[in-house]
């Protein structure tokens, strides 16, 4: 499948339409705070998605809901029915993933209700890179937390980046941040993988069809030369 994908990409790359894409992607990679985002690639592999889902479940879910993701949908990233049942307890399988704290409590603590994360990876420019960089750029100065991407952020340092001095611990946190970002990227567009698979076939189909139609066209038009 992967080879197929690369092959299609290569053909598509040659399409002149690509300039548009290149133009848009290269046009600026900075957020409002102008802090450069880390340009890491996301692979959407199942192991990483599952680890990310667990981190969301243990950490983020305290304050952030994921209202467009239902428990049953988690099976699409490779969780078995039993694993999902274990996660949900007595919550119905068709229920959405909701946060565990109440709005009232969050409101009194942070002054606002933390946003739903279902679409976060699409709702920011360069969403996944934004989320990853935000999670990994917390710092602490005399007990006050600050974030490089989002100055004045209310969200606490969820992955404990600020106090990680040890290099191996830092790496571990970074890989955690990547996993949870992978999961949020999937949540924002769970049909992306299917879309790309189908898309490869559709684009190849039309390219072949175009070539065939080109020759049919040539043949039909050649009748005009015979007449003369």
């Amino acid at each position: 499948m992967m080879a197929m994908n690369n092959c299609a990409r290569f053909i598509i790359l040659t399409l002149s339409a690509m300039w548009l894409n290149v133009f848009f992607v290269s046009a600026g990679f900075a957020t409002t705070s102008n802090f450069p985002l880390e340009n890491i690639k996301f692979t959407q592999d199942q192991a990483s998605l599952q680890r990310g889902a667990k981190i969301y479940y243990d950490v983020c879910r305290l304050c952030h809901s994921l209202k467009y993701i239902k428990y049953k949908v988690l099976q699409e990233i490779g969780f078995t029915k039993e694993q999902v049942d274990l996660l949900r307890g007595d919550i119905p399988i068709s229920a959405s993933l909701s946060k565990t704290s109440s709005d009232k409590m969050l409101n009194s603590q942070y002054g606002q209700v933390p946003p739903d994360l279902s679409l976060m990876a699409k709702a920011r420019k360069h969403g996944p890179q934004y989320i990853y960089t935000l999670l990994t750029t917390y710092s602490e100065k005399e007990g006050v937390y600050e974030n490089a991407v989002f100055p004045g952020i209310k969200m606490p340092d969820a992955l404990n980046v600020a106090n990680a001095i040890d290099e191996s611990l830092k790496q571990e946190i970074k890989s955690k941040a990547k996993d949870v970002t992978e999961f949020l990227l999937w949540s924002s567009d769970p049909r992306a993988a299917v879309r790309k698979t189908i898309g490869t076939y559709v684009v190849i189909y039309f390219l072949i069809l175009s070539v065939m139609l080109y020759f049919i066209m040539k043949r039909v038009w050649s009748r005009l030369d015979k007449e003369k």
Binding site: K196, T200, V203, L207, L209
Partner: peptide, 17 residues
């Protein structure tokens, strides 16, 4: 028809990717 087919190849790229 040939034009439509070429159009669909480009359009599909943007729809799917």
């Amino acid at each position: 028809i040939f034009g439509v087919s070429v159009f669909f190849a480009v359009y599909s790229y943007f729809v799917f990717f």
